[in-house]
Amino acid sequence: MTEADLQKADPRYEGFYGTYTITEADRREVQRYRVALLISGIAFSAGLLQWWQWGGQLAWLWVLPLAASLGLALHWIHIYLRPLHRALQLFWLLGCLGWGALLMMASPSAALTTLQNHPLWILAVGPLFAALAGIGFKEFFCFRRAEAIGLTLLLPLALLGRLSSLMPADLCLALLGAAALLLLVLALRKFGIPAAADVGDKSVFAYLEQQRAAGAP
């Protein structure tokens, strides 16, 4: 492959700290992030729909693809600040552990009913949704999408409202359903933008890595 072919395949951009390229590996990573986010939206929406229409006996199964796809999305997401990225991954891990404890202690078929009747369980499973709200905040901060800020606000509003007993279960479920639909809209709309937008300014990543390396003992 000639130099001209390489430049065509990996276009150069002018960043805050210098030029950078968006490589094929970057594009694959963005595509995987978008697919994982879409699967999260589908699983979240389908689980809530099944819970609303047919009860929670089998609806808990949708938690599995939701948690798995959300974890992958957090692996492939591009966030400048490593502490923020690690915090979202930690929330995801804590939420997965919380769901595991709920499924073991209440039995899978009764897990969602237990969660509905005993809101204190939200403290255990809530971090998973905190990680999802964090993705929403990142997407709003970067792209100013209305569905992203809606997702960011509705998830904590629903869960904290139910945890504090200030919100009836039906309203909480409705707000979660709205958040799930907003997540679907957010994920679908991301397929229409260039990969470079999701990658962001790689010169900032490179600069922060240099700063971390320089400060390492």
Results as ranks from 00 to 15, higher is better:
I39E: 00
A110W: 05
S45T: 11
L186N: 14
L123R: 13
L186V: 09
K202F: 00
L151D: 01
G177L: 03
L84P: 01
L128Q: 01
R27H: 08
L188C: 10
S107W: 12
M167Q: 12
M105C: 08
R212P: 01
L112K: 05
A25G: 06
G55Q: 03
L48R: 02
L38A: 10
A169Q: 09
L132Q: 09
Q211K: 14
M1W: 15
R28I: 10
G136L: 08
M105Q: 13
A4W: 09
H85T: 08
T114V: 13
Q53I: 13
L84F: 11
F16E: 09
G41W: 02
E139L: 08
A130S: 11
L160E: 00
D201Y: 03
T113K: 03
L81K: 11
I193N: 09
L183I: 01
P83D: 15
F91E: 03
T113R: 13
I77H: 13
L102Q: 11
I149V: 07
L49G: 14
A148W: 05
Y80G: 07
P127A: 06
P194Q: 13
A174R: 10
A213D: 03
S109L: 05
L155K: 08
G15T: 06
A111D: 07
K138M: 01
S45G: 07
S203G: 12
R145I: 06
S165R: 09
A130H: 00
L176Q: 08
G161L: 11
E14C: 14
A214Y: 12
P194S: 01
A174L: 11
P65M: 11
L176R: 07
S69C: 02
P168C: 08
I149P: 00
T21E: 04
L183W: 07
G150Y: 02
L151M: 07
A158M: 05
M167P: 04
L186M: 12
D201R: 04
D198Y: 08
H118A: 15
S203W: 06
F205I: 04
Q116R: 13
M1P: 10
A187H: 04
Q50A: 09
I77V: 11
V125Q: 02
L90G: 10
L157Y: 02
G56H: 07
E147F: 10
L155N: 00
P156L: 15
W121K: 00
A111I: 08
A158V: 02
C96S: 11
H118Y: 15
D10M: 14
G126W: 00
L37Q: 12
L70S: 08
A187N: 05
R189A: 10
L188V: 10
A131C: 00
S164G: 04
W54Q: 15
P217L: 13
T2K: 11
A206P: 04
E14T: 15
I39M: 05
L81G: 13
Q50L: 13
T21R: 15
Y207D: 02
W92F: 13
L128N: 01
L159A: 04
L155H: 01
G136N: 07
A36L: 02
C142L: 12
L64A: 11
I79W: 05
R145C: 03
T152N: 05
T19G: 12
T152R: 01
N117D: 09
G95A: 01
L166S: 10
R12E: 13
